[in-house]
Nucleic acid binder design. Structure first.
Lengths: 133, 133
DNA sequence: CTTGACTTTACAGTAACTGCAAAGTTTAGG
DNA sequence: CCTAAACTTTGCAGTTACTGTAAAGTCAAG
């Protein structure tokens, strides 16, 4: 199949597929006589793995590394490392959530102050006392 | 004061201050004879406003626009628009949180399947039936 | 007078793509 | 056979908000 079909079936754009190849995340596809990339179902499978890992929030380079392990017949090693990453991701997600919650509380408080007419409680004029904004 | 002191008192780096100026987020600072930027307490106040708005998650361009309004004596208009942005931000935060929650559930499920020995339930070999990864 | 701590500028790099331009290829229809 | 649409190729610029580096000038202390 050609790049557009591969991309469509993997759920990304042809440009992204070429980008992944350029970045070494996917192996360089063999070319037909006209220079077009030609893909097999196995290739599709590999792309899908990368897309799935990206969807889990892993960095592209990490997806490439893990996918390469799998291609080298070390799927078990890959699985092990993927499991590690999943744990790390969940920690990062928990942290991100806490941060969002904190920010939302700040925003709510600020909204409240502003709506009740108080002038900018933004830390604009700090503890040093300040000039007019 | 010089750029480092301004930056320190505003809670950012000197490089960020110069960047903000280059981007037009802050007005160009007047220079001393030696070419160094010279700032007043009012300038510090302006930078702090931008830093505060950035901390609320607003885009830099938006911070620049709002801060400029305030500089032009339209603090009231700025406040109004800021209030709008805060509402939008809170919506975006709620959406981001929902996404994080969803992702975390996915990760947890995947962790579970992998730990109990099931091979990659990643959508790697899709509904079309697939090759080996 | 030297050393260290500043300052200036400009430019490269980051993450993960998207969009564009220019040129060649294929495919369907007339 | 011709043409027009819909592909494909490459390379490069743009996105966001900076950070890091390099080269060069300035300033304060000892």
């Amino acid at each position: 199949m050609k790049v557009s079909e591969l991309a469509r079936r993997a759920g990304i754009t042809p440009a992204a597929v070429r980008f992944y190849e350029a970045e070494g995340v996917l192996p360089a596809a063999p070319r037909k006589a006209n220079g077009y990339r030609e893909y097999t179902d196995d290739d599709l499978c590999r792309v899908r793995l990368v897309v799935a890992m990206r969807g889990l929030g892993l960095e592209l380079s990490e997806c490439g590394r893990l996918s390469a392990l799998c291609r080298d017949g070390q799927c078990d090693v890959m699985e092990e490392q993927l499991l590690d990453r999943l744990g790390e991701r969940r920690q990062a997600i928990a942290a991100a959530r806490a941060e969002l919650d904190h920010l939302d509380r700040e925003l709510a408080t600020l909204q409240g102050s502003m709506r009740s007419g108080k002038m900018l409680p933004l830390a604009c004029c700090g503890p040093e006392g300040g000039a007019t904004c």
